[in-house]
């Protein structure tokens, strides 16, 4: 585990590596990698966090950003993906503090792939803008966002898939789902597809709302109480993010952290 307290350029080693960001001041970090790398980045504290990543041609890189901060964070990120490279980014946002995040991903060269995904347990303001831009032909961008919004939560996501002219045979797909259980919360999802090329595939799916009464009745008719049903649904929405990085020890740790959070619902 590497502690990060100052501005740094970090070259990811092959395989799994782990970082903890903790700073009372703003930070500016750059990550870059080639080959197959998986990074787990726990954010303890940092008021303004600027992150840049570079995914080299042919590389296969995954980042899991785990927000553990109990103070507000504003993150501004840009990610560059080169030819035939794969970039996967996931955000675990299950902390009890405000987050404002602006993510920009550029699929810069042929064959680039990017996935941006998030799992949010919103009890505070969680405001995200994410934009994945296909700049080159044969590129694929995906966004998958899942949120459980609780009382006091204010969940907002603006997910933009953009394919520029000339980026033919490209794809842009996105899914966003928010589950809300109680009064006194606010959820908003804006799915956007901005397409300036004919030969493309694009899709978006979005759902937002309470658990349906009929679904609840179905779960209850099998013996689950309202609270148990809510926990079960939340587990289904949030738990998959703990499997994002291929490291058994980490998976176990995140799983028990998440279980603890869901058990408190």
């Amino acid at each position: 585990m590497i502690e990060v307290h100052v501005n740094q350029d970090i070259a990811l080693p092959h395989g799994f590596s782990e970082y903890v960001i903790e700073s009372e001041r703003d930070l500016d970090l750059t990550f870059s990698g080639s080959g197959k790398c998986q990074a787990f980045i726990r954010i303890r504290k940092c008021p303004n966090l600027r992150i840049r990543t570079f995914t080299d041609a042919g590389a296969d890189i995954s980042y899991l950003f785990w927000n553990d901060s109990d103070t507000p964070i504003t993150a501004d990120e840009s990610h560059e993906v080169m030819a035939d490279a794969s970039l996967k980014i996931a955000y675990g946002e299950c902390n009890h503090a405000e987050t404002k995040r602006n993510v920009w991903v550029a699929l810069r060269q042929n064959g680039a792939y990017a996935l941006v995904s998030s799992a949010t347990l919103a009890e505070d303001k969680k405001n995200t803008r994410m934009e994945v831009v296909n700049y080159a032909p044969h590129t694929v961008g995906e966004m998958k966002n899942f949120a459980v919004v609780l009382k006091g939560g204010n969940f907002f996501i603006d997910a933009i898939g953009k394919i520029v002219k000339g980026a033919y045979a490209s794809q842009s797909h996105q899914t966003s789902r928010a589950l809300c259980f109680e009064e006194g919360q606010n959820s908003e999802i804006i799915p956007e597809l901005l397409i300036d090329e004919n030969d493309v595939q694009a899709s978006h799916a979005m759902s937002i709302g309470r658990m349906d009464d009929e679904q609840l009745y179905y779960l209850q008719s099998r013996g689950l109480s309202m609270r148990q049903s809510i926990m079960l649904m939340s587990t289904g929405y949030l738990m998959p993010i703990t499997e994002f990085i291929d490291d058994e020890g980490l998976k176990e740790r995140l799983k028990s952290e998440m279980e603890e959070k869901i058990a408190r619902l």
Binding site: E214, Q215, L219, L232, M233, Y237
Partner: peptide, 11 residues
């Protein structure tokens, strides 16, 4: 009913 997001085994 269909319950998306919840696997049969967890349920």
């Amino acid at each position: 009913q269909e319950i998306p997001g919840v696997t049969n085994s967890d349920f």
